[in-house]
């Protein structure tokens, strides 16, 4: 609610540090893709790195770290809802492939 938080000017150093971190993670994700860890682990690793990159962008480039609580909530709600959509839809596919019921399907 306070204006001072909104006009908060973030030092350029923060942006530069974020950028360096993003670049390091980009190198890391490409390097990791060459390491044979198995489908599951590799996919999870690539996703985790992407998630970290996204969080850096949201917190620093998009100023959510310095935002009001309202901005915090609205920046989180979309991602939270995606989890719901993914979890419920994918659960159908998981059960469809592992549980076969007589007379169903």
């Amino acid at each position: 609610m306070h204006g001072s938080q909104h006009s908060h000017v973030i030092p350029i150093a923060v942006y530069l540090r974020s950028f360096v971190a993003l670049m390091a993670l980009l190198v890391l994700t490409i390097a990791a893709s060459h390491v044979p860890l198995g489908t599951g682990v590799s996919s999870a690793l690539a996703f985790t790195i992407a998630l970290i990159k996204a969080v850096i962008v949201v917190l620093y480039f998009m100023h959510v770290r310095y935002g009001t609580r309202l901005v915090w909530v609205w920046s989180a709600v979309g991602f939270f809802w995606l989890i719901i959509m993914f979890a419920i839809t994918l659960s159908d596919y998981v059960f469809r492939s592992i549980v076969r019921v007589q007379g169903w399907q």
């Binding site: 860890l37 690539a46 996703f47 962008v57």
Partner: peptide
């Protein structure tokens, strides 16, 4: 940018 951050590994880095 964030959308691309996710698209890149999903499309280009399939294990």
């Amino acid at each position: 940018d964030i959308v691309w951050i996710f698209l890149f590994p999903l499309l280009y880095l399939i294990p």
